[in-house]
């Protein structure tokens, strides 16, 4: 097995949240990400799924060091990003890029598409000539399915799907090894979503790219991922090969998530067994003791409130954090 590109070990991101106090302020820790570990191989796509507030976006940001980790390590090709100086980080970040959810909001409205895509080149290769830069930008625009003639247009002149292509071109221009996609298709219409997913899959093949694909949409994640991580309140519930996870999910939360996704087929959708979780996820400020999912779990027993389940290998290529996964 090749050396992993990225090794994340026991990563924790806790945000201080003000809970009161007028003169002396009181803070509590919001555990956005709480002890996440995983490896990522070159050319692999890791899907990260979970509901809002589960820490999936924070996890992506912490890998990029856009938020600082409270504890744990993120080693990128052997060097720990959490311990790097700013200058060292800048070198590493050349290989680590990101695509955000809102395609229009993540592009500077006063820069042309060409300038936006060229900005990483200006940053990392200030000596590059304008002619060479323009050629590279137009080449990348063609690769992501934008007409190179649109180089001088502004973001508002593009549709949502095209803006997302600009965001992808900007992420790809330095030929990175890893791109973190934070809900890249959630803001797009169904017909455009498939186009962008296909583009990401094509780019991955062409450049042997690794992807961390963060999304709340299980069906999309299934399409693009090799392995999938299910997060709930900052903790990993299940981490498995794609087919193992979707064909036989072991964690009660994964099972409930899958059962909740509506199937676009009236007969199947109306006939399927309903496993409806009660309530909403609890506040991450005050998570339940033991297993964080126990308050909504149909299988919860006494032990779940007392002991935090560890993420153990249940089968080959499938790890699950549950006391009761066997039945």
């Amino acid at each position: 097995m090749p050396e992993p590109l990225l090794k994340v070990r026991d990563l924790k991101v806790h945000y201080p949240v003000r809970t009161g106090g007028v003169v002396v302020r009181r803070f509590a820790a919001l555990k956005a990400v709480d002890g996440v570990s995983f490896d990522l191989q070159p050319g692999e796509t890791l899907g990260v799924v979970g509901e809002s507030g589960c820490g999936k976006s924070t996890l992506g940001r912490a890998v990029l060091q856009l938020v600082s980790a409270t504890a744990g390590s993120v080693s990128w090709l052997g060097c720990d990003l959490t311990k790097q100086t700013k200058r060292e980080l800048k070198d590493c970040r050349k290989d680590l890029q990101v695509v955000f959810q809102d395609p229009l909001a993540s592009l500077d409205p006063r820069m042309t598409a060409g300038d936006i895509i060229a900005e990483p080149l200006r940053n990392y290769f200030p000596a590059m000539s304008a002619v060479e830069r323009k050629a590279k930008v137009q080449d990348m625009m063609a690769k992501v399915g934008l007409l190179p003639a649109m180089i001088n247009r502004y973001p508002h002149e593009f549709s949502g799907g095209q803006c997302q292509r600009i965001g992808i071109a900007r992420a790809m221009i330095l030929n990175p090894k890893l791109v973190i996609c934070d809900e890249p298709v959630s803001a797009l219409d169904v017909s455009i979503r498939a186009q962008v997913i296909n583009l990401l899959m094509d780019l991955q093949k062409a450049f042997n790219l690794s992807l961390i694909f963060i999304s709340h949409d299980l069906a999309v994640v299934r399409h693009i991922s090799h392995r999938v991580m299910v997060l709930y309140l900052g903790k990993v519930m299940e981490l498995a090969e794609r087919d193992a996870l979707y064909q036989s999910p072991l964690h009660p939360y994964t099972q409930a998530l899958m059962a909740a996704v509506p199937i676009p087929d009236p007969d199947k959708e109306r006939a399927k067994a309903r496993v409806i979780l009660s309530d909403d996820p609890p506040s991450p400020l005050n998570p339940p003791s033991g297993c964080v999912f126990r308050t909504r779990c149909p299988k919860a027993t006494g032990v779940c409130a007392e002991k935090i389940p560890t993420l153990d290998a249940a089968r080959a290529g499938q790890e699950v954090a549950c006391h009761h996964w066997r039945g």
Partner: peptide, 22 residues
């Protein structure tokens, strides 16, 4: 219908798309 990803059938490979822009 074709470009809606779904959990109930086999997957893999590229997704079916509707070409062009809205």
């Amino acid at each position: 219908l074709a470009c809606t990803p779904r959990l109930d059938d086999a997957c893999g490979g590229l997704m079916t798309t509707i070409s062009g822009q809205p």
